[in-house]
Structure formats: C-alpha cells, structure tokens
Design a protein around this nucleic acid. Structure first.
Ligand SMILES: [Mn+2]
Ligand SMILES: [Mn+2]
Ligand SMILES: [Mn+2]
Ligand SMILES: [Mn+2]
Lengths: 222, 222
DNA sequence: TTGTATTTTTAGGCTAGCCTAAACTTTTTT
DNA sequence: AAAAAAGTTTAGGCTAGCCTAAAAATACAA
C-alpha cells in the first residue's frame, strides 16, 4: 500500500497533536488549524486514512493512530530528525534553518537511504533541537526534561531541548548564546512575572521571560 | 511561479529527449513513451507548460524548451547528479543504485541546500556515470567522448562514461571490473559482429559485444 | 495526387485533495 | 431542560493530472 506525501503529513500531524493529550483523540479542528486546511477537507482525509487502516476514526469522536499509523509516524519523525542532523553537522546549516528543508526530505522513500544516513551521521540519538531520534524499529526514548519555568528553585540546570521550534525563538536563543547541552545557572527568580536571571555556561548573564523559560527544556545538573 | 513535481519531470524529459536531435522539437509520442503517460495526457500538460512560458509549443509541431525551461532543466539535472555523487561518495551506494533515489532527491527545493551540498562534495565535475554536472549558473561542459564501437582501430582508450543507465547494464560493467576513469586496451576487433576483445586496466581480459561497446563512452588515451 | 497509416489533439470522464455553505451533533450556558 | 454556541460532517464544486475513444492533422506510399 502506498501513502501519498499529503497522507504522510496528516499522519505526522495526528501523531504530533496526540501527544498533548494521548487519552483523548485528536480533533478535526485542531488538525484543520495545524495543517492550514478547512475542517471539511480534514474529514475527507480522515475517511481515507481510516479506509487504509492508518487511524481509528469514529464520527464526532476524534481520531487515534492505529499501530500501523503510529509506526509510520515514527518512521517519518526519524527521517526528519536524521536529515536535520545531516544539515547541521555536515552542511553547516544553523538550527533555525534545518526544519524547513527537513520537511521536504522526510518524504524521500528509501529504507536503505535512511539506514546509511544514520550510520554516516554516527547513529545520533538527538536532533539539533534536542528531540530524540527514533531507532530503526521506531523506538523512542522519552526524556525526563521539563520546561525551566516549572522549576521554582535557584541552582544549576542543563539545557537539553526546546518546546517551540519557530525560527524567531531559535534565533533568540542563539543571540543569547545558548546552545543544547550547555549549563544554565539560575541566580534569581522574580515571583512577580516569573522571569529568570541566569548565567549561561558560566559566562554571559541573561534574562529569561516566562515565555522563554516555558519553552526551554532542562534537567537538573548533577 | 511555482512548478509541481510532475511539471519538473516533464521539463526534464523534454530536455533529455531534445538532445537526440536538437533541431527538431520533441514529439508528443516520445514524451508519452518516456513518461509512461498516454499521448492525450501529454498534450494536456504541454498546454499548461506553454501557459507558464516554460516551453515553446505549437500544435502538431513538437515542443522546445524556452530559455526559462532550459534553465530549470539544468537546475534539476544539477541536483540529480550532485545527489548521485553524495549517495556514492558519502553513503557508499553503488553506481547502479544511486539513480532511483536521486530521482526523488532532485525535487527538493532549496538553493542553499544544493550549493552547500556541492561544497560538501568538493565541487565535483562529474557524476558516478561520468555525466557532467552543470554549475550553479547552469553551464554544462560538453565532452568529446564517443561510444567505443565507433572506433575502428586497436589501441588504448579511457572509459569516461556510459550511454545507458539501466541497472542491469551498470551491474554488467561492474562484473567486468570496469570503473569510470580506467583504461581499456582494444586488442582485437571482430569485423563479423563488431565485438571487441579488450584488456581492462592492464589486468582482466574481457569481451565486449557491440551492444556493450555502443554504450561505453571513451576517449583516446594520450 | 490520392488514399492510408501514423501522430496528435479534443472531448468526456475519473480520483485526490482542496474549498464553501448548509446540515447535523455535541457541548455549554441560561 | 431548552436554547445557544461550538464542533463536525455532508453536499456540491473546483483543479491537477491522469485515462479512453473519437476526430483531426500530418506523413508516407501507391
Ligand atoms: Mn523539525
Ligand atoms: Mn528538530
Ligand atoms: Mn541518474
Ligand atoms: Mn548519473
């Protein structure tokens, strides 16, 4: 059975949206918003995906990926993230540039290609944004990282990923001199607006608004 | 103006077919054959491409690429051949495997990507089949190589490319131990069936049928 | 040059993937 | 519990890109 590029993008969107609340199905409207299509078009496609057994779909009830659909979604995510690593590591793109190109590359169909790419890149475990790369079997190690703004105590943290992937946000972090893997020392938390005064990598002093710290994923430094 | 993947493939087909006889336009039937579409479908598309000023098209007269179309074709060929080099050099695919994957990769849209890929590969001038790679401006150096079977004298030649790109043919050459850039010493030409007895790279002795030597491009060794 | 064969175009039809507007279902508010 | 609001599906329509079959144009042969 062959799956079109459009269908792949729906599968990926369902996968991505279903993680916000895995118990409840993904709504037609959320898909419509996420894919910039009208709700009626989404319903059309959901019927076709159900026909192909890629999703579980019940009218008015929201949609879930089937096992087959989930596997396909993970394969696409794997390709997307590996290509992002390639673009950054080998072609020297910046982390705010890689996503758009990977959106195209993730649809290239060749098992062999992606396994060789993986080897060529040295079997990376994370992409340039700190997101884990599913292995060839579609297994994903979930991380225990949390947004910085959920921590209420000063101290040392490690920056391991981002919650938001927009160009402006990534460029803002670059401007602050913040890179994945670096340490963040929280020196002050302002209760009033939940802003953070921090030292990045023991050097630059910076200031994170709540909006920024909500989108920075950290682990407590050991 | 955006060009669909399908339109790109038509442009590439016209480009490729027009080189057999550049004076005369490419025929609807030849395109139909080459693209595995029916003639009526081709006519449909030719109208759309003419609308977009990518071709010069006159009913019943055959079709020519416009300057714009030619530029686009060369850009696609450039991408195709650079990706083939990538697949061979960096991912260790064999020369009979790279074409099919490059057929997909050639449609990825990003100027920046292809220029960085070119630099990453060391600005190669030829692809794995000996075909020249157009530069960023779309310039192509034409070679003076000819099929081996057009030569009627024994002596030393250099294998610089292939006329046919099918998997079986390329695998046949690999089996003979023949690689691009290697030398071929013609030791005997049989007038009866135009077959060649040769020594490859001063080592293996081999036998080329006319069909083989017609598809091997060589230059006289200096 | 006239008839026949070949090539090409036209006409009509189909599916995927989108749209808008109306109808229907579910949820929320009063 | 009824009304209103929000969410979803259905109905009808559109384009790109394909198809088949018939018609028209061109090329070839007698
Ligand atoms: Mn991405
Ligand atoms: Mn990423
Ligand atoms: Mn090729
Ligand atoms: Mn090639």
């Amino acid at each position: 059975m062959e799956v079109s590029l459009t269908e792949e993008n729906y599968i990926k969107a369902i996968f991505s949206l279903s993680k916000h609340n895995p118990a409840i199905g993904v709504s037609t409207n959320d898909l419509s918003e996420h894919l910039n299509n009208k709700a009626g078009s989404v319903t059309d496609m959901l019927k076709r995906l159900a026909e192909k057994k890629l999703i579980h779909y019940e009218k008015y009830k929201g949609v879930f990926l089937s096992a087959k659909g989930e596997k396909m979604a993970l394969a696409i995510v794997r390709k997307h993230r590996l290509w992002e690593v390639f673009l950054l590591d080998k072609l020297q793109f910046t982390w705010d540039e890689v996503h758009d190109i990977a959106e195209q590359l993730e649809h290239i169909k060749s098992e062999e290609l992606i396994e060789r790419l993986d080897a060529f890149l040295g079997h990376p475990k994370f992409d340039p944004h700190g997101d884990p790369i599913p292995n060839a079997k579609g297994q994903l190690n979930s991380s225990k990282a949390k947004p910085l703004n959920q921590f209420k105590t000063k101290g040392n943290y490690v920056f391991v990923g981002v919650n938001e992937h927009s160009k402006p946000f990534l460029q803002h972090l670059s401007a602050l001199g913040l890179k994945i893997g670096e340490s963040i020392k929280v020196e002050e938390i302002n209760a009033f607006d939940n802003s953070f005064r921090v030292k990045i990598n023991k050097k630059e002093s910076a200031f994170f608004s709540d909006k920024v710290s909500a989108n920075i994923l950290v682990e407590v430094k050991k």
